[in-house]
Design a protein around this nucleic acid. Structure first.
Length: 432
RNA sequence: GUGACCAUAGCUCAAUAGGUUAGAGCGCUGGACUGUGACUCCAGAGGUUGAGGGUUCGAUUCCCUUUGGUCACCCCA
């Protein structure tokens, strides 16, 4: 019986298989995030993969596709509670923040998180059922500088640290709740007049979520949408000033961006600033990072009425775009021991461990076989040195150190057992 | 939920019009060198042609069903 991984859930292997990047690419991305977030005062938080379903329903929105049809939901053994695999990270993080009354210790909380998320969707390029997000949330600051700092941090991370290119930052303001409801009314009455020139999907959106119609890609819809009222015109004075300040601060830092009046977000909780980083070369899903302000969410989950802003990055999408690492380390052992006969196995075993204890990676092939086949393996693993140990070496307590990689370098020098480790270390220090 | 395309060795792909024993490169194992890799040469292992059914003297090839994969729509990171 051959069992393979569940559809849409992928293995990440040490080496590259097909288009699936090796785990080293993931590690590079994760390390870059860790370093960058630390620089800006974000601390890591880890929350469970499973939460009560109501948490997601309340925060993400009952009417969203995510909650309506994409969650992995089940009842636990006792049957009382409905649980779900998390479809995104913010809800759980905010829940943890509220549950532990974190705001009582510090009025400002900056947290980052990462891990697998789950959505039951048809898989497609850049979209999986188990996928990974790395995100951050800054809770407690309403000032526009917070928005700007977050965007500067992301721009530096994506552009400078990860070298994602091409990359575009799109921003918009959704206004406050009242602005949004006023605008939705305005938009609806406009769309109503043009329903017959809109596509089928847009007519459905008109009923369900008019804002999403603005995102429509159907060419025939564009003329109508271009003429549609823009949310910018419906912003309250404070919301407008907030947005302008964000843009001013970003301009100050020479952050390149595009204001997209038609940019909206899929989750219900966003207000004011929202943004998206889009890259090329990913098929239909070019967004690698998205987020925005959610000033009402913490309060609505039973916590203090604190403003917040956050984002999430799609790890699979970013990893796919990560340029090859120019200075990739050879991952093989530095030293490979080759043994000839049972007695030399013991000697190799001991010397190999001595090598490792002093910090030099070493391996051997316990399966034995011919010296040739063991040497082949040493080469294949990318070892720097090979050491063959047989009867003569044991008798003289000396080994010859063969340097691989080099074409000629026949400098097989004999070294006594006692000096072996030091000698290898010295050579490693001398040239790489 | 809707639609399109694909499926042959571990990987990438061949196989004339439906024809005999399904091939190649890479990888793997071994040998040439009985204690020395990488280069070269030689050999070997590895296939229910995704699965099931049908048409046919004969199916990798044509038809149906099914499973899996890929991509797009919806939606989203």
């Amino acid at each position: 019986m051959k069992i393979s991984a569940v559809k849409g859930m992928n293995d990440i292997l040490p080496e590259q298989i097909g288009t699936q990047r090796p785990i080293s690419a993931w590690q590079r991305l994760e390390n870059a995030c860790r370093v960058r977030f630390d620089l800006y005062g974000y601390r890591e938080v880890r929350t469970p993969v499973v939460e009560e379903t109501r948490l997601f329903a309340r925060s993400i929105g009952e009417s969203t596709d995510i909650v309506g049809k994409e969650m992995y939901t089940f009842s636990d053994r006792k049957g009382k509670k409905l649980l779900s695999l998390r479809p995104e990270g913010t809800a759980g993080v905010v829940r943890a923040f509220v549950q532990h009354s974190v705001h009582t210790r510090d009025p400002i909380t900056k947290w980052w998180y990462g891990g697998p998320m789950y959505r039951y969707e048809r898989v497609q390029a850049g979209r999986y059922r188990q996928f990974h997000q790395i995100g951050a949330e800054a809770i407690g600051v309403a000032e526009p500088a917070m928005d700007a700092e977050l965007l500067v941090m992301l721009d530096r991370l994506l552009r400078d640290d990860l070298r994602i290119s091409p990359l575009k930052l799109l921003v918009n303001s959704l206004g406050d709740r009242a602005d949004r409801t006023a605008y939705v009314d305005l938009l609806k009455s406009y769309l109503k007049k043009h329903l017959d020139s809109l596509c089928e999907d847009c007519r459905r959106r008109y009923e369900q979520n008019p804002l999403r119609a603005l995102d429509c890609k159907v060419p025939d819809c564009q003329p109508v949408l271009d003429e549609a009222p823009q949310i910018g015109e419906s912003l309250s004075e404070p919301a407008r000033r907030h947005f302008e300040k964000v843009l001013a601060l970003l301009g100050e830092m020479d952050i390149e961006l595009e204001v997209r009046p038609r940019l909206v977000r899929g989750l219900d909780y966003y207000n004011r600033t929202c943004f998206e980083f889009v890259a090329g070369g990913l098929g239909a899903h070019d967004t690698v990072c998205a987020g925005g302000r959610y000033d009402d969410l913490v309060g609505s989950l039973g916590g203090p009425r604190l403003p917040a802003i956050g984002f999430a990055m799609g790890v699979e999408r970013l990893v796919m775009l990560l340029p090859e690492d120019p200075n990739l380390e050879p991952e093989g052992p530095r030293v490979f021991f080759v043994y000839v006969g049972e007695e030399s196995l013991e000697t190799c075993f001991r010397l190999m461990e001595e090598m490792r204890e002093s910090g030099v990676s070493a391996e051997m092939d316990f399966r034995g076989g011919s010296v040739k086949s063991q040497m082949r393996r040493a080469d294949k693993k990318g070892a720097r040195f090979a050491i063959v140990i047989g009867e003569t070496e044991i008798a003289t307590r000396r080994v010859s150190l063969k340097e691989l990689w080099r074409e000629k370098a026949r400098d097989e020098e004999t070294i006594s057992f006692d000096l072996l480790v030091d000698s290898v270390k010295k050579r490693l220090l001398m040239n790489g």
